[in-house]
Design a protein around this nucleic acid. Structure first.
Lengths: 220, 220
DNA sequence: AGTAGTGTGTGCCTTATATCACAATCGGGA
DNA sequence: TCCCGATTGTGATATAAGGCACACACTACT
């Protein structure tokens, strides 16, 4: 089916040695802690100190970092400012990214108004819906447009990320439309197991599912 | 441990402590798909069909289920209605659970108004904050109370789940208070790596971190 | 300049998770 | 009744992730 060559297409410049996804998913955690340390004036940190903060073993932190280079100094640890910059560059967080929201119902509007994205460099530059009564309205100065304009908007506004906040039944078709429009990553709030081609990353935000797995440990 | 020594851990539903967390986390996924299948009138399903829907291998589904019992019939597959009921019972979803929200700022109010929890049996029965200007107000008929009342409320209202929607700096102390009040599970929306004792489960909802790991794959 | 102390980077081993593959079982039809 | 196609449940195996432990590098102090 959609098998194609997946890994071979990455720019093999310097650090592309097939880094496990789990490792990539931990990097933002490191960025966050290091940023906090920097803000409190600390300029060197050891893997052991980081491990204490994050509740993981020092070895795991060192090994994770070693996928990308040698950032520490023996006997001293890591320079906080230098490491946070390196990690941000690795993650592509040394620039800003444009995103759009699809679905401007209650949830979509809450996401659009959420003040946590902008400070981290994620700018929501467009909003879409299929409901005629919403199209034309604005949320936080963001005009809601028809979903049919999405392809054009993605290209014109250089939108790399799509945020999906539509009902479950509509989610897969919206996701298909985003993929078709040339989006690179999707943050999906709809409670569905959505499918994307290999070149489009997708992550799900699903509080209900999180609750549903925790109750397993509650029944006693 | 040579021949067919029984060793079966199939005590059917009680606390088999040897079920991996990853397996438990997949169960709600199965519940969701099975529920949808039931709603569309399908009454038998094979692990292969489930695997197609969920994009995973049939073997994994069968093995996951085998941790909890033998629910299928050879040559036929699984009875959808029976399996969904079994899984719900295993997860503790055959009853409802009371939750409280701590932090009734913008995010907390959005969570309180989210209509997706109640249909799945999660009832938000209390809301707390430390901000005097919020205490006494109501959100969707839910009065906001002082955080100092939390211990009492947890016991009186049989609250098992705490939802944390406070700023990062306050999160750990709020979580400590919830643990101290006797809560069993925490859904944390604050962008921190929080710590709980082993008997209290915690799961984080962090859209920004999800975005930050996806950008790794976007940088071309 | 030598030495003691500290903490990295990484080869190797352990543990966890996923997949394979096949005997056992079921239901239906001849 | 017996056989056939289908599909489970699970031991065995493969793969992935995590952690240990130590040589090596760096700093500071004498």
């Amino acid at each position: 089916m959609a098998t194609g060559s997946i890994q071979t297409t990455h720019s093999n410049g310097s650090d592309d040695v097939d880094v496990p996804d789990v490792v990539v998913e931990r990097l933002p955690l490191y960025v966050r802690v290091l940023t906090a340390l920097a803000a409190s004036g600390i300029d060197m940190v050891s893997s052991e100190q980081l491990g204490d903060q994050l509740h993981m073993t020092p070895a795991q932190i060192r090994k994770d970092l070693s996928y990308f280079g040698r950032f520490g100094k023996q006997g001293r640890g890591y320079n906080v400012a230098a490491l946070v910059n390196k990690l941000k560059a690795i993650l592509g967080l040394d620039r800003s990214w444009n995103a759009c929201i699809v679905g401007m119902g209650r949830l979509g509007r809450a996401i659009a108004s959420y003040p946590g994205f902008a400070p981290e460099g994620f700018k929501i530059v467009a909003a879409f819906d299929t409901d005629q009564s919403l199209i034309g309205t604005s949320v936080d100065n963001l005009p809601v447009r028809s979903l049919s304009h999405i392809r054009q908007a993605v290209q014109e506004d250089d939108i790399a990320i799509g945020i999906v906040a539509v009902p479950a039944v509509a989610a897969q078709s919206v996701i298909d439309a985003l993929v078709d429009a040339g989006i690179g990553a999707i943050l999906n709030y709809a409670p569905v197991t959505a499918h994307t081609p290999d070149h489009v990353k997708i992550k799900n935000i699903d509080p209900v599912m999180s609750l549903q797995s925790m109750t397993y440990y509650l029944k006693s």
